[in-house]
Design a binder for these strands. Structure first.
Lengths: 356, 356
DNA sequence: TTGATCATTCAAACAGTTTGAGTTAATCCC
DNA sequence: GGGATTAACTCAAACTGTTTGAATGATCAA
C-alpha cells in the first residue's frame, strides 16, 4: 500500500504515515515495491512488510518429542525440526529447546537480532483440574509457570497455549481463516480440542484451559465427545480389530484402501462431529468452523463432505458468506507452526498491552 | 485514588495524571473526596468518579412490552418504567422509546447533556437463521439494522445485544461478577441464553448471535437444552397439570409452597443444568458461572445448591477462588438494567475503537 | 526539632501528531 | 500536443499530550 491509502485506512494523516514509514524502513521492517499507478495523480510508492524483518520461533512439547519451527514475518517456515525425547522434566526440555533455538538462528542468517518471540505449545489442561491425569499431560510441570520459565531461558517474550489455539492462529495467518475474526477451529490432537477466535483474539479462558470440547458429554452414548471423535478413538477402534495405525500415513493408507474397520468408525464420528458443530455454532456463532490437526487430509475432507450440519443452529443462515464447515491445515507440524503463529499474531494485530 | 497512585497503576507520570484530572474535573466527571493520609508524606487528594457525571439509558424490547431504565455512572438506577405494547413494528416502537427517553431526561435534572449512550436489548437471533421463527422474535425487523436505526432516532451512540449478554454486563458492574473478566452468565429469559465475557469483553459471535445455549441438543432426551431448562419449559410442565404461572411471583409462591408439579420439574432441570455447566466450563474455562434472569430468587438458589457439578471439567480445580456456580441478579428488570450496563461498560473499560 | 518520605505543582523539553503550502507525476479532455 | 485536473508526497510550523527535573507542602519517625 501507499502512504495515503494507509493513512485513510488508519485514520491518520499522510504525514504521520510518512514519519512512521521512515522509522520502520530504517529498522528494516518494510520493503519498497515500486510505484503503482491506479488512475490520475502521482503513482503511490508501494510498501510491504519485509518478510525477513522479523522471525518467530515455535516449539511444540509432546510427551515423546519436541518439535520446532522458525517462521519469517510472512509466516513462511524457514526451519522445521523434530527431536525424540524420553524425559520430559523441565530441565531436560529447556536444554533441548535452547539447542534447537541456536540451530534455528544458525540456519537463518540475520534472524539473530530480529526475533519477535517464541510460542510454546504444550499439552493442557494447565494446573490441576478435573480432567488432569489422563496420561496426556506432562509430569513435573505443575509447579512451574511455563511462560516465565521459557522466557527467562530463551531471553524472549513467550506465549504459551494449547495445540488447538495455536493451530487456529496458524490458519488465520496463511490458511482458511484469512480475513476472519470470529471462527472456531476443531483440532485433532490426541483428543479433540477447540480453538476459539473472537474479534481477532483467542478465547483462552480464565486459566488458559478453554476449548476442551473433547471432554463434554456426548448425547446418546455413555461417554464424552472424544470417545467418538478423535485420533485416539479411531486408533482404539482399529486396534480392537487388531490393526495398528500409529501415524497419519498409515491412517491415510487405510482410508484410501477403504478399510472396512476404519469406515465403520466414520459414521458415528460424523454424528459426533455434527453434535460438536451444533454446540459450537449455537454457543459461539462463528463465521466458519475449521477442521484440522493430526489426521489425513482425505479424512478431513470426508468429514466436511459427509457431516450433515444441524438445521437448528444460528449459523444455518440462507445467505452465508463462508462454508459452515471447512478443512484447514493438517499434518504433523500444524500445532508447531501454530506456536510460532501465536507470536506473529500478537505482533501484527492491535491490542491493548497490559502494563506490567 | 490520588494522582500518584493512579499514575503508578496506569504507567503514567504524576504530571500526566494531573493534567487529565484537571480536564475531567472541568467536565464534572470527577469529584474530590478529601485527603487520605496512609503513612508519611503529603496525604493524597482523593478523586472518584462523579456518579452524576454521566448516564446510560437502557431499553428492553419484548413482544408484549417495552422496559426502560436510566442508570447513573455508578450503575444506580434513577428511573425504571414499563409500557405495555400491542404493536412491535419499528415505527411504533421508536416513537414509544423516544417518549420514554424524554421522560427519563425530565426525571433526572442534569442528565440531558450527560448521556453516554443507549443500550438496547431485543430478542435474538438477529437475521435469518435456523432457529428463527419460533415465535419469540419480532416481526418487521428483518430489514433494519437496529443499532443504526435507534442511534439516529435518539441521537445517541447505541449498543444492541441480547438479554443474556446485557445481564452479564450488569452483573459485572454491581453484582456477583465484580472483578471477574472471564465468566459466563446463564440467563433465564423465555428460553435459555448464555452471556460470555472473555478478558472483559463480550463474546458476541460473528453476527451477534453467540450464546444460544438453549438450542443445543440435550443428551438423553429427544430435544434441546431449553426444553428441560427454561421458564417456558416450566410453564408448559405446570400447564399440563392445569396450573398456570404467568409471572415470577406465582412461580415463587408455588416453589415456596413445595408444589409437587413444580418440584417434579426441578430434578430433570438440575440434570440439564449440570450438562450446561459441563459444556460451558470445558469450552470456556470461566472463573465462575452465574445464574440469573426471570426466575424467582429461591429457585435460582435451589439450582445452585442442588446441582451436582461435573467432575470431568477443567473448572473442577482443588484451589478454586470462586464458587463454580452462583446466583446473580434475578427479576423482571435484569435485562433492562443490563442494557444500560452495556453502555457503562463500553465507556469505562479500555478498548480499541475501530475507525469508521 | 530535624530529616525522611511522599504528593503535588510548575516549567521546560520531548514525541507524535495535524495542518497548510508547495512539488511531482500521472490521467483527462479539448 | 498541451493545459486542466487529480492524487501522492514532502517540508515546515503548529499543536497535543507526554516526560523530566526542580521546587514546595504536609506528614511521620527519631
Amino acid at each position: 500500500m501507499g502512504r495515503a491509502e494507509i493513512g485513510r485506512a488508519l485514520s491518520l494523516s499522510t504525514q504521520a504515515v510518512s514519519n512512521i514509514i521512515a522509522e520502520l524502513s530504517d529498522d528494516g521492517l518494510l520493503i519498497e515495491r515500486g510505484h503503482l499507478a491506479v488512475g490520475r495523480g502521482l503513482p503511490a510508492k508501494q510498501y510491504a512488510l519485509n518478510p525477513k524483518g522479523g522471525y518467530a520461533f515455535g516449539i511444540e512439547i509432546r510427551p515423546d518429542a519436541l518439535l520446532a519451527a522458525l517462521l519469517d514475518m510472512e509466516g513462511n517456515p524457514v526451519m522445521m525440526k523434530r527431536v525424540a525425547m524420553t524425559k520430559t522434566d523441565p530441565e531436560t526440555i529447556v536444554v533441548q529447546i535452547k539447542s534447537l533455538y541456536l540451530e534455528a538462528l544458525a540456519d537463518e542468517a540475520g534472524a539473530g537480532g530480529r526475533m519477535l518471540g517464541a510460542g510454546i505449545v504444550m499439552p493442557g489442561p494447565f494446573g490441576a483440574t478435573g480432567i488432569s491425569g489422563h496420561g496426556t499431560d506432562l509430569a513435573d510441570w505443575n509447579d512451574i509457570d511455563p511462560a516465565t520459565y521459557f522466557s527467562q531461558a530463551l531471553d524472549l517474550p513467550v506465549e504459551v497455549s494449547n495445540d488447538a489455539n495455536a493451530a487456529a492462529m496458524a490458519e488465520r495467518l496463511n490458511g482458511a481463516a484469512q480475513g476472519l475474526s470470529n471462527y472456531a477451529y476443531l483440532y485433532f490432537g490426541t483428543g479433540l480440542g477447540l480453538g476459539l477466535v473472537s474479534d481477532g483474539a483467542l478465547v483462552q479462558g480464565a486459566f488458559g484451559n478453554a476449548g476442551e470440547i473433547g471432554h463434554i458429554p456426548m448425547p446418546g452414548i455413555n461417554g464424552n465427545l472424544e470417545s467418538r471423535l478423535s485420533r485416539m478413538s479411531l486408533q482404539q477402534h482399529l486396534s480392537s480389530a487388531d490393526k495398528h495405525a500409529d501415524d497419519i500415513d498409515t491412517l491415510a493408507m487405510l482410508f484410501e484402501s477403504r478399510d472396512k474397520d476404519l469406515h465403520a468408525w466414520l459414521k458415528p464420528a460424523c454424528e459426533a462431529l455434527a453434535y460438536a458443530v451444533a454446540v459450537v455454532e449455537n454457543l459461539f456463532d462463528p463465521e466458519a468452523i475449521i477442521l484440522g490437526g493430526a489426521m489425513p487430509d482425505a479424512l478431513l475432507e470426508y468429514f466436511v463432505d459427509q457431516t450433515s450440519l444441524p438445521d437448528q443452529s444460528v449459523s444455518n443462515r440462507p445467505n452465508a458468506q463462508h462454508p459452515r464447515l471447512q478443512s484447514g491445515a493438517s499434518g504433523r507440524m500444524t500445532a508447531t507452526l501454530g506456536a510460532a503463529a501465536l507470536v506473529l499474531n500478537r505482533t501484527l494485530s492491535p491490542h491493548i498491552a497490559h502494563a506490567h
